[in-house]
Design a protein around this nucleic acid. Structure first.
Length: 408
RNA sequence: GCGAUCGUAGCUCAGUUGGUUAGAGCGCCGGUUUGUGGUACCGGAGGUCGGGGGUUCGAGACCCCUCGAUCGCCCCA
């Protein structure tokens, strides 16, 4: 009849127990903090036309060609499960006329999909928190966004092991000049670079800067720095961001090797990094993407945003205690099951969380009920209800009152 | 796409240089005891040792293939 049980898809996870509690804690904290900063909640589609991501990411990259979950629908149109939030939100900003709300602060969270090899903190279906400010060209937007991220990490209780690394990529011209200088510099040492970096020289030269290969690191130290190519405006912008962070009390450190692969990034780039998650140390990252809207056919629109991996945050948060119920009820006699059900319903209607034990060996129900660490432990037998609780437990009187209507 | 490590009960793991009928703890189910904040004891269910092939008198163990997991490289929107 039944064959072999289907296995879960590689890179997906069934999150349960303490892990699920940590996950929920991360999301709840994000929702709370996001309100403090007045970011509006948005719900976005899980899939979009492939074009949305292909155009925003730049068609050439591996990212688009190999790492997206794309498929044709029945009409023959190519669709893609969202690999990030930003492109979809940008699309909505344009198609839904959200310009009328600019500057628009939005936040969301949910599943994302990337066809990658799973490893620590990396999954094919994973989950992110996301925050974006669209239509704000001022550095204050960057500051507010980063301050929110900083407060989130603090409220999650993980700020200690995490540092904010900050860099600027300059405006379009600064960035191009720096890029050209890097290519020239690394080309001169081409033969001494790692094979991977020789390849990167063509595909993505900025990425040589964060190579893990020791052969590359020697040259990275003396590579041209963005600071020497920044326009006066770009310098001012970065100074305003760092000054704002200082004013807000957000600790940061400069990382001149922090780069973004995609061309639409300008000015601020940042990552909150930890060394406690193995090779996947970035816990929250983002930057300013002033060039993105145009790649989707919209008007030039400044924007800045970040995303954070919920799984990684949950790992840092650690195991959360699963709180016991308000009441744990052991029905120690099968003749009293209906009475137990009635009492349980009444307690829940009164706002108490209740767990009932009315199956299995009647003699063992009490022990099971005791095990869940309820604030009040109630047994029901022919002698009626019998409450046990710690001396100062609040609400015991109310619980008693609810139970009293069922006799004793 | 590449590499390393690892797959034994629901979970965590023992299992000797290859040797009789594959074990423990926890959990689950039942019973006895206790009789009220987690007791103790007894019993039970649950395994084609990831799968396939090979070496051997004999494989959970050794070899090959395969599947899966973990971690790392590449990539990282």
């Amino acid at each position: 009849m039944s064959g072999k049980t289907p296995q879960p898809i590689r890179g997906t996870q069934d999150i349960f127990g303490a892990d699920a509690e940590s996950f929920a804690f991360v999301v709840e904290t994000f929702e709370r903090v996001r309100r403090l900063y007045r970011f509006r909640r948005v719900e976005m589609p899980v899939f979009e036309k492939t074009e949305v991501f292909a155009r925003s990411l730049g068609e050439t990259t591996d990212v688009v060609s190999k790492e997206m979950y794309s498929f044709d629908d029945r009409g023959g149109e190519s669709l893609t499960l969202r690999p990030e939030f930003t492109a979809g939100i940008a699309r909505a900003y344009l198609t839904d006329g959200w310009k009328q709300y600019a500057p628009l602060k939005v936040a969301t969270h949910g599943p994302l999909f990337r066809y990658e090899r799973p490893q620590k903190g990396r999954y094919r279906q994973f989950h992110q928190l996301d925050a974006e400010v669209i239509g704000a060209a001022e550095p204050q937007a960057d500051v507010e966004l980063l301050t929110m991220a900083d407060q989130l990490l603090k409220e999650l209780g993980i700020a200690d092991g995490v540092t904010l690394q900050l860099n600027t990529l300059g405006d379009g011209d600064s960035r191009e000049a720096w890029r050209a200088a890097l290519i020239e510099y690394f080309s001169a040492h081409r033969a001494e670079l790692s094979e991977d970096s020789q390849d990167r020289l063509e595909r993505n030269p900025l990425r040589i800067l964060d190579s893990k290969d020791s052969r590359d690191k020697a040259f990275v130290a003396d590579a041209p720095r963005i600071d020497d190519y920044l326009s006066a405006e770009a310098q001012d912008f970065f100074a305003a961001v760092t000054g704002g962070l200082d004013a807000a009390g957000v600790a940061w450190s400069r990382n001149p090797a922090l780069v973004r692969g995609l061309d639409y990034y300008r000015h601020t780039a940042f990552e909150f990094v930890t060394d406690r998650l193995g090779a996947q140390g970035t816990v929250l990252g983002g930057g300013r993407y002033d060039g993105l809207m145009e790649s989707l056919g919209g008007p030039a629109t400044p924007a800045v945003g970040w995303a954070a991996g919920i799984e990684r945050l949950a790992m840092l948060v650690g195991d959360r205690e699963i709180a016991g119920p308000d009441v744990s009820l052991a029905v120690e006699d099968n003749a009293l099951i209906a009475k137990g059900i009635a009492a349980t319903a009444a307690l829940r209607a009164a706002g108490f969380s209740v767990e009932v034990f009315d199956s299995g060996s009647p003699r063992k129900r009490y022990d099971k009920a005791a095990k869940v660490q309820a604030r009040a432990l109630v047994s029901l037998n022919t002698g009626g209800f019998n409450i046990r609780s710690a001396p100062d437990t609040p609400d015991v009187d109310r619980i008693n009152q609810v139970l009293s209507q069922f006799g004793s």
